[in-house]
Design a protein around this nucleic acid. Structure first.
Lengths: 204, 204
DNA sequence: TCGTAACTTTACCAAATGGTAAAAAACTTG
DNA sequence: CAAGTTTTTTACCATTTGGTAAAGTTACGA
């Protein structure tokens, strides 16, 4: 077969990383079809054929990014502990999501782009990886609700609303910057608001 | 100048509409750069040069869509009445937003696409049209809060969270369809959840 | 019904784009 | 340091893409 890759060399590791880093920003803003190989090459100071040397084609870069993204994206949800204090666990999850929105807006937008476009390259991954975890965590939340530890509501929609609100700060940053200028205190204001909001919603 | 357009003929009105309708769906899913004139022509059963006959170029179609969108998008926010009952007004706004998400998901995704990409063609419009209205409505909400009619919080972030949650159902439909299969009761469940959630948040 | 203006179609074109071939350069290792 | 291997660069190429020119067709008012 055509899998000569034994152990990636130092150069290989470095350059793949450079490519991913450049491609992440571009795919996140222009989408897959809106991003060209020339742009990526330019952004990471390489020549186009050099990209193809490291990645079979444009799609391979995109897929690599989505795969990495999926893991990072799920870990905070996975970290919700069924034996912990319900409100603390959910608020903790929300904080982690807000932090990710702030630290990794490109990843958030890449994901948003992929989903808005109907998840053409990610649907199977959503089914096989996200769905089971989602169902499990919904179950945990449902149990907490049944025990009266937090207010009773539809767990799935609760998670949707957490995703919606937290990711909104990354995905719609351009709009927020217009409507709420002076970015000094913006992040803190957002954090405070979101935590207050869900605390109120979740209190029985 | 080159503005021969007096009164658009019936054919002109019809065909422009056909083009817009086709382009809306495509721009919404593939973004501006990801959509080709050939695709649009195909989708509305026209030939490419025919598109250019009605719209100067690809960007003109996109801009026309964004302009139309902006008005439709703002009207529910504008409809919030300062003399009405605070909770009713805000909940009414939320209901209208949820309805729009359900009825016009393409518009929602077109908007999302534009903003995620940094609003390259819409920034001025956001500044000149959205910002003043946003500030005005924030003022109304702030007054309601000061009067103790609804819970006190940051009005801007409240609106952001309403946008985030309601538009999420349109923009991330692909993901929701995977996680919450059986779309029969989905819309109603979402409506109920969102209303309950904000009712709780807004209650003093 | 006839002439003209509005509209549509066919045939193009230059630039951009994803990707290849292969030579040149740089690095690794015995 | 020489031989082999990995990496980079240059020169291409076929296809796609946004857009044009102009001939052909249709609608429509006098």
């Amino acid at each position: 077969m055509n899998t000569p890759a034994r152990k990636p060399s130092r150069i290989q590791t470095e350059n793949r990383q450079r490519i991913r880093d450049a491609a992440l920003g571009l795919f996140a803003t222009y989408g897959f079809r809106g991003t060209t190989l020339d742009q990526i090459a330019d952004a990471c100071g390489m020549h186009k054929p050099n990209l193809i040397y490291y990645y079979e084609n444009k799609e391979a870069i995109h897929i690599d990014l989505l795969n990495t993204l999926m893991e990072e994206w799920l870990s905070p949800l996975d970290a919700m502990d069924p034996s912990g204090d319900p409100l603390d666990e959910i608020i903790g999850y929300i904080r982690r999501k807000m932090e990710m929105s702030r630290l990794y807006p490109r990843e958030s937008r890449l994901f948003a782009n992929e989903i808005v476009q109907g998840a053409p390259r990610m649907l199977p991954h959503l089914e096989s990886t996200l769905k089971p975890l989602f169902d499990k965590q919904c179950g945990i939340i449902a149990r907490w609700m049944k025990e009266g530890k937090i207010a009773d509501m539809h767990p799935a929609h609760l998670i949707f609303s957490i995703w919606a609100v937290t990711q909104h700060y990354a995905d719609f940053e351009a709009q927020i910057a217009v409507l709420l200028p002076g970015d000094d205190k913006r992040a803190r204001g957002a954090d405070q608001f979101v935590e207050m909001m869900f605390r109120k919603v979740l209190t029985p």
